[in-house]
Design a protein around this nucleic acid. Structure first.
Lengths: 203, 203
DNA sequence: AATTGTGAATTGATTCACAGCT
DNA sequence: AGCTGTGAATCAATTCACAATT
């Protein structure tokens, strides 16, 4: 029935489903039921079906979903067909860790450059440039996504600068809630808060 | 009015408020209005007030909240008074990155040990032990929290083992949705999904 | 017989609107 | 006058229940 606007949470879960499908593909399974896929994704079967319903009908009643077909459709909806170049700003402790982390590349993202005030010891093949080159690089290479791992006090000013230069999406590892215009998306990852949150639930 | 059960999302936001308060404290401000604090936390003022209402009344009408008083109360509610020991399992790329990341210590968590099949080059003061010592260490030191950065295919078996040994909370960096008993909490952090999710919103 | 797709019902979260303090 | 605290209203997300399909 293909609704017009897909809720943020649904979009997020689509990525989770996609991951699960990829693992199933490797195992040479051809079809999967909403019940099985939902279990792997940690949701209820009805929720999975509702989520998929936002962008069409893909299952076969009585049989379930064709894995590669559904996976392809998800790729299409999520727009992850092409490789996305990403820059990383703040090559400190966490920043350099993320630069050497290979997990992104597998999923279609490539950190093409790092930026910092100081030049850190070269640890990966990814080039690191001084902050003065930041805006120029973004415009020149038409970069849309940035990972922000600068110290908290620099976060807002850096974001202002990169948004100005054309960045449209930011993965923010600083504890600051960034103020950005409506056309820019920010996802926050705060590892300390995740731990703090967990600790609340242990008695 | 102190309700009995605090929603998960509220608990999460309490940590965010706490962070914002800490920054204000450094700036030597004494009071803050729900409007100002909410803005810093990226929520609406009414939501902040509703969240706080779950565990009591702390503001002064007409004046706002006393920062250190509110912060102290939050610490109490969140149970982050004492330092929590945490172990990290899987000292690969991301794992060793997190071990050297100092962000946790600031917020009351200490990674006391790492575990892996292979012994990685020693990069921090944190000791790394072979997996055989895992269960014993957890029981002996009464560890409640674990960070999981093992390869996906090992994730479920490792979790079974640590839950058995007494772990009650897991910060899971693997893309697997872990199956755990009801008394165990899991928070998932999937960096690739965060990026994929962002990329959906850039046109 | 099995399993999807979906309107209706339910549950949960957010926001409004304003009464109640200081 | 200013700002919190909260019941009521609204809005959003989830789950139910079952008809439709293979």
């Amino acid at each position: 029935m293909a609704k017009d606007v897909i809720p943020r949470k649904t979009v997020y879960r689509l990525s989770v489903y996609q991951r699960c499908l990829q693992r199933l593909k490797v195992n040479d399974v051809e079809r999967v039921s909403s019940e099985a896929l939902a279990k792997a994704a940690g949701v209820k079967p009805t929720q999975l079906r509702k989520d998929l319903a936002y962008f069409g009908q893909f299952g076969t009643r009585g049989l379930g979903y064709n894995i590669s077909q559904l996976s392809e459709k998800l790729t299409q909806v999520l727009g992850t067909t092409r490789l996305q170049p990403v820059i990383l700003i703040g090559v400190g402790n966490l920043g350099s860790a993320l630069m050497s982390y290979q997990g992104f590349n597998k999923e279609g993202f490539e950190i093409v450059a790092g930026f910092d005030i100081e030049m850190p010891p070269k640890i990966t093949d990814v080039p690191v440039f001084p902050l003065e080159k930041l805006s120029g690089f973004i415009t020149e290479h038409n970069i849309k996504m940035a990972i922000l791992t600068v110290p908290a006090r620099r976060a807002q000013e850096v974001v202002n600068q990169i948004v100005e230069a054309g960045i449209q999406a930011v993965l923010n590892f600083t504890p600051i809630i960034l103020q950005v215009p409506d056309n820019v998306v920010v996802n926050n990852v705060d590892l300390a808060i995740e731990l703090e949150n967990l600790s609340y639930f242990i008695r």
